[in-house]
């Protein structure tokens, strides 16, 4: 994977964060450039670099401007962009169990009706797609997924709905997402995963890296209950393969 392409924009987010912006739309090619720079900087971080936050179309670099000069940081980013980068970690393919049936897929029928489908059809379409992990945000472990099929690419609700259960699988705004925490949402809850996307006591508190691929595996409510118990005991019930 190389970083060839137009020169990115360098935008200040205060004096201690620099946004390297590769585009202004959600696009896998832009995401590839963001993640390649993320990997290139993480592989050999300069003194004073604090945190890297990859998003759909930019990389936010948090740094200490007293230890890392802004101009030197930009020069370093340009230098890393100039050489073809190899990702330090191969993207993985995850299989995430998901129960679309009652009581878990609370809004599935509502979403399906709005898209001219019935609930099993909408669930089958959601489970048929291969998704890309674009970024985290919103709350710990909240994963934004691209690759939602057009047939169920519904926009967000105009008003948020009351809080959903934790570990909800969502669609809205043309995307899918997995929410780790219970909260009100403008998205539609189409299913629930027994996996914990945020488990601070587990050696891997988070499972996915941006750039990974993910598919959902439909499970029935009894399997959900069994897998949830294993996940709560610390086991990882999602399956990982090298992509």
């Amino acid at each position: 994977m190389t970083l060839e392409g137009a020169r990115p924009l360098f935008l200040d987010a205060g004096e201690a964060a620099l946004v390297v912006e590769f585009g202004r739309i959600v696009d896998p090619a832009i995401s590839d450039r963001v993640l390649a720079l993320d990997a290139a900087l993480a592989a050999a971080p300069p003194e004073g670099l604090r945190e890297l936050v990859p998003t759909y179309r930019s990389l936010m670099i948090h740094y200490d401007p007293l230890r890392l000069d802004r101009a030197a940081l930009i020069a370093l980013v340009e230098e890393r962009l100039a050489v073809p980068a190899t990702l330090s970690r191969a993207a993985a393919l995850w299989t995430l169990p998901c129960c679309y049936e009652a009581p878990h897929g609370e809004d599935l029928a509502e979403m399906a009706a709005l898209m001219g489908l019935n609930a099993p059809e909408a669930a089958a379409i959601h489970a048929s797609a291969l998704y890309r992990v674009y970024m985290y945000g919103f709350s710990p472990g909240f994963t934004y997924l691209g690759g939602l099929p057009e047939a169920i690419a519904i926009s967000r609700r105009s008003q948020p709905r009351p809080p959903h259960e934790s570990k909800a699988v969502l669609v809205g705004g043309g995307l899918s997402a997995v929410a780790s925490f219970s909260m009100p949402t403008g998205w539609y809850v189409v299913g629930r995963t027994p996996e914990r996307l945020y488990a601070p006591e587990r050696p891997s508190a988070f499972l996915f890296e941006p750039g990974d691929s993910l598919r959902f595996e439909p499970i029935d409510p009894a399997t959900f209950t069994a897998l949830e118990a294993r996940a709560e005991a610390g086991e990882i019930v999602a399956r990982r393969q090298a992509a």
Binding site: A13, G14, E21, R24, I25, Y56, R57, S58, M60, M135
Partner: peptide, 11 residues
């Protein structure tokens, strides 16, 4: 409406 990007404290 912009695609979400990073948020620094004080943004």
């Amino acid at each position: 409406n912009i695609p979400s990007d990073g948020v620094a404290m004080g943004a």
